[in-house]
Amino acid sequence: MNNYKLITKQNLHSFFDALQPKNTIIAPKEINKKYYFKPVDKFEDIALDYIQTVLSAKSVLFPRSDTLFNYHRADGDYNIDEPSPIEKNTIVFGMKPCDASSFVYLSNFFLKDYQDKNIKERLEKLYIISLSCKEADNACFCTSVGSNPASTKGSDLNLTLIENDTYYVEVVTEKGQELINYSADLFQDTKEIDKSKYIANVPQKFDVEQAKQNIDSIFESPLWVKDSLACLGCGICAYACPTCTCFDIQDIGSQFNGSRVRNWDSCAFDLFTKHASGHNPRPVQSQRWRNRIKHKFEYSVENLGLISCVGCGRCIRSCPTSMNIVKTVQIFQGV
């Protein structure tokens, strides 16, 4: 489905007020000149003119630490309870189209074979209102990975600021229509418009099909070492990434009482691939960096038919040593 509407900024405020009482709303908020997704209850708290948040919104679906169940031993037996993963419907208000498209990858990853219960329940109650980008920076590269700053992929509603404080609204899914129905009279019907003149210009930096082929074919190359000398093996890139899904399952507590928890993990860490024997098949950082790049453009294509990079640029902006995934892909483009 696709139908097109207009809403003024003032009415968008009223729309937020209509949604707020019955839903949890997560939106970008400014904290010390940086932007983070936080729960908001006032429209004024939302940053509408940001370029990118530091961390992605994936934690709405896949939290940093996710309790799978609690256990308690009593009378010689274990009692298990599974806490509800989500209470109210959750709306992410104003995420960028690159982030919205990451949810297509995330739902594929977590639901394709084994249906992850927590993720499934959260996804059912998740609504995405994306906001097309007016501005981009040097780190943005959505157009290189098959998207664009006004893409509706993964969104339920997509808003594009056109002119005179008016947003052009695309209703992408039934869920989007459900949101509109909270206060349908705030919207005005319109025809499809060409959004391209209202959005940021993000130059294409590489050809994704070519990149997939090149990265697929190169495993042993001195370039992996040369390109990753600066990498220090922290987990910022994976933790800021909207599509990195690796996790580590731990039991927290004692043998009598505790929780089984799923925590984020990162392939940049030494411990990530370490075997119980003590052997580590990826003992050095260049091999871990290679894994990251190959996972994004090769392994996830093999597993799910999708690349796992949406071009949000967070890994580039937050890397303390300026490692740059675009530069790496370009290096292999030139091979």
Partner: peptide
Amino acid sequence: CIKCYACRSV
């Protein structure tokens, strides 16, 4: 803190 351990790495 998200425990990315960047503080340690740098």
